[in-house]
Design a protein around this nucleic acid. Structure first.
Length: 423
RNA sequence: GGAGAGAUGCCUGAGUGGCCGAAAGGAACGGUUUGCUAAACCGUCGUACGGGUUAAACUGUACCGAGGGUUCGAAUCCCUCUCUCUCCGCCA
């Protein structure tokens, strides 16, 4: 959520950047300013009337103590008439504040100046690539066939006990996944991140704080009985650990990492996108979250991107890093780098990480602030990134590393996995 | 799930109708003192939204778990909800 004073002082910039994000309802910006003016005016009126009531009430107390009953009664009726005015004024103020808030939450975050223009994923800009696309042997197959051949993942079994999009990992498949979680977490911890195991369900306030509610309500699984949402990413609980907190500037940066399953309804997805491990309703992910000083967030974004890149490189997978164009970015993001790895048997790129600076967008909703030397509380910047989402990494390892004699395990995973090959 | 107790500022904790945005102590921060550390002493020590100002100063309103109510006036009285703690039951 953007801050109204910022919008007021930078109206032209706001309009320009919203257009870059392909946002259509630009009239909302003016509406916000009008509503905010109205809010200020009503606030002033309300406060002034309330101030009169408060001072009259104090006088009544003194008059009563002095035994001046008649004078006290006169003041009481004065207060009564003021209160009649107050009631509708208060209702109008509350309605105006709500209307303002309802409009504010419709505005996406502003893209940073560095965001390339564009509307579709094709207009994302590749900024780096690395690794080598392997030449596969003649009988190479996609990961879902490998999963069956080596008895690693059972999709049908998942269908039976839950539904499509909930695979059952077994044998070496389960172990490889567990090895990756362990390796990813260790990699992050060794780079200064603190490990957390957060809850896998959150309340509505948390879902609002990171921006899942109200817009993306349909994307989350909801447990109605207890009014809890299954997390779509660990970003939600991790960021919300600091909701309504005022940190000291010496507490920054906060660097968190955590492994959680992630639950996404993915309504409307179909076809090759959902084949095998490509898109699931439940998947595992190791996440990074940083809470930082506003002056540092873009340096930190580069640092996190380099960190994820090193992790991907260590797995020896062909990858590319894209800077997302305005139209393809998430609602809350100011600048996003996507990581994709190449799935050789499917001959397509699969997104395995998305690293974003959301600036104050979540901090404003979740009220995450810090105090610097001046003693004034101001909003932090938050960042998040995957390091990494597991199923597509698993898919690429299986496909890219398949050989006649089995599937070769990347060197960095071998000690966690317990061997160098699946055969 | 049943019974009881409770929810106050960074923490402990006082406050049962006006003098309370809130005592006191601790922590933290700034300073004085000091050979160093410690101690002592002095000061600062909530947030949000308004008004005001070049910026301050200054000033108004709201907030003592949340939401309602009573009253001229509520941290304080009443109602509802949420959460926490203790005991019992069940249980990984």
């Amino acid at each position: 959520m953007l801050q109204v004073p910022f919008i007021r002082q930078n109206k032209a910039l706001v309009l320009e950047r919203l257009a870059l994000k392909n946002f259509k309802e630009l009239d909302l910006v003016e509406e916000i300013l009008v509503l905010d003016d109205k809010r200020k005016k009503l606030t002033l009126e309300y406060d002034e009337t309330q101030a009169k009531i408060n001072s009259a009430s104090k006088e009544i107390g003194k008059l009563m103590a002095q035994g001046q009953k008649e004078e006290a009664e006169a003041r009481k009726s004065e207060v009564a008439s003021l209160k009649e005015k107050l009631q509708p004024a208060n209702e109008e103020l509350i309605a105006t504040e709500k209307a303002l808030h309802d409009v504010l939450i419709k505005l996406p975050n502003l893209p940073a100046a560095a965001v390339p223009p564009g509307k579709t994923p094709e207009e994302n800009v590749e900024i780096r690539k690395g690794g080598q696309v392997p030449v596969l042997h003649a009988g190479a197959v996609p990961h879902w066939d490998l999963a069956k051949k080596y008895d690693l993942i059972d999709f049908e079994l998942g269908n039976k006990i839950t539904g499509s999009g909930f695979p059952v990992y077994k044998n070496k498949g389960a172990r490889l996944q567990r090895a990756m979680i362990q390796y990813f977490l260790d990699f992050n911890i060794n780079n200064g991140y603190t490990e957390y195991q957060p809850p896998h369900m959150v309340n509505a306030a948390s879902a609002y704080g990171t921006g899942q509610l109200p817009d993306k309500e349909g994307q989350m699984y909801f447990v109605g009985e207890d009014e809890l949402y299954l997390i779509p990413t660990a970003e939600v609980p991790l960021t919300n650990l600091f909701r309504d907190e005022i940190l000291k500037d010496t507490d920054l940066p906060v660097k968190m990492t955590g492994y959680t399953p992630c639950f996404r309804r993915e309504a409307g997805s179909y076809g090759k996108d959902v084949r095998g491990l490509n898109r699931l309703h439940q998947f595992d992910k190791v996440e990074l979250v940083q809470i930082v000083h506003p002056d540092k967030s873009y340096d930190v974004l580069e640092e996190m991107t380099a960190h994820v890149e090193a992790l991907v490189q260590s797995l020896q997978l062909p990858y590319r890093i894209l800077k997302l164009c305005g139209g393809d970015m998430g609602f809350g993001s100011a600048l996003t780098y996507d990581f994709e790895v190449y799935s050789t048997a499917q001959q397509r790129w699969l997104e395995v990480s998305s690293v974003s600076n959301v600036e104050t967008f979540q901090a404003n909703r979740a009220k995450i602030r810090f105090k610097d030397g001046t003693g004034k509380a101001q909003l932090v910047h938050t960042l998040n990134g995957s390091s990494l989402a597991l199923p597509r990494i698993l898919a690429c390892i299986l496909e890219n590393n398949q050989a006649e004699d089995g599937i070769h395990i990347p060197a960095v995973l071998q000690s966690y996995f317990g061997s160098g090959k699946i055969s």
